[in-house]
């Protein structure tokens, strides 16, 4: 222990100070190189390892960041910045389920750390843990109404839970602070549509559609298609969903929506293969199966319909018996 303290003290020299300055001024690549040199001298020093991880995170190298934060935690299991860093890296890597225990521990150890709480709130959003995420994010925006990121996460959380009125307010707060947040704009447009404020929604969707970056965004195109579908503009919806499929051909959800639109266009023959593809891509989801059931029944293909009905029955029975969805 004494040896470690002495070594650390020796590192409190120009090298570490410089690296910290580079980091604090956003020069992450240079900071990363500097920290890496220091880590070579003290490979197990948690204070250096989490800084290195933070640089990797800022550079978008989330897998590398995860590794460094984990190393830091081996050396010091309850180091809050490493816990939070690991958690945020995992969220960025799409593994928010794995992130939660680290973030929860980080917030417990450093309850006043807003970044940690925000990251935890974000992870709850990703995991659709509404009841856990809502109070954290609500508190963050109450403490600092200028925290646009927390407003956005709160808006997303509420939107995913379909509290569209409240979601719209939160998203609009977020956009006041960060008007360029495209995800918030898409969710806002969808919330307006859900609330039946179609003219406003249409205007926002049309504006967003002119953004070249979004013209290949499956998320945006699907949201737009859903809005058009809701307003029975099936031909327009089909164009959007087909563009989305071009961008993400393996997304089951998109094939389901294409099938649904085609079904409403009375093109059941074309809708069936799309729905079948959606089932093939995501056999665990009920959406396309129910649509297929309906279409097979309408076409008198009762044996194929029965197969889908059996699957849906089994799926629903689990829920009725209290075994969850």
């Amino acid at each position: 222990m004494l040896e470690r303290l002495i070594l650390l003290a020796l590192l409190q020299t120009a090298d570490l100070t410089t690296a910290d300055q580079l980091f604090n001024t956003g020069r992450f690549a240079e900071a990363e190189a500097q920290y890496r040199r220091l880590v070579q001298k003290m490979p197990n020093e948690p204070a250096l390892l989490w800084r290195l991880g933070a640089c990797d995170y800022q550079l978008g190298n989330f897998a590398a960041a995860e590794k460094e934060f984990r190393k830091a935690l081996v050396a010091e299991p309850n180091l809050p910045p490493a816990l939070v860093g690991l958690g945020t890296s995992l969220v960025a890597l799409g593994r928010s389920d794995a992130a939660l225990p680290f973030l929860e521990r980080g917030v417990k150890l450093a309850p006043s750390n807003r970044m940690a709480r925000r990251a935890l709130g974000h992870a709850y959003v990703e995991q659709q843990e509404f009841l856990k995420g809502e109070p954290i994010l609500r508190r963050l925006v109450e403490e600092d109404p200028r925290d646009g990121e927390s407003w956005f996460y709160l808006g997303t959380l509420l939107f995913n839970r379909h509290y569209d009125d409240a979601a719209l307010s939160a998203l609009e707060e977020s956009l006041k602070i960060n008007p360029a947040n495209v995800e918030a704009q898409i969710d806002r447009a969808s919330a307006l549509a859900q609330l039946g404020r179609n003219q406003q929604a249409d205007a926002v969707f049309q504006r967003l559609a002119r953004d070249p970056k979004l013209q290949g965004s499956p998320e945006f195109l699907l949201a737009y298609a859903q809005f058009l579908f809701q307003n029975e503009r099936y031909d327009d919806a089909l164009i959007k969903v087909e563009a989305a499929i071009k961008a993400a051909p393996k997304a089951a959800k998109l094939h389901f929506w294409k099938a649904r639109i085609l079904f409403h266009l009375d093109k059941t023959d074309l809708a069936i293969p799309e729905a079948e593809q959606a089932v093939a891509l995501a056999p665990e989801l009920p959406n396309a199966r129910n649509l297929l059931l309906r279409m097979y029944r309408a076409q008198g293909r009762d044996r194929e319909a029965a197969k889908q009905a059996d699957w849906l029955l089994h799926h629903e029975n689990k829920v009725a018996l209290g075994q969850g969805r």
Partner: peptide
Amino acid sequence: LEYCVALREDGSA
């Protein structure tokens, strides 16, 4: 399910 009144069109209960 056979009558197609069990679920919403998108398969949700």
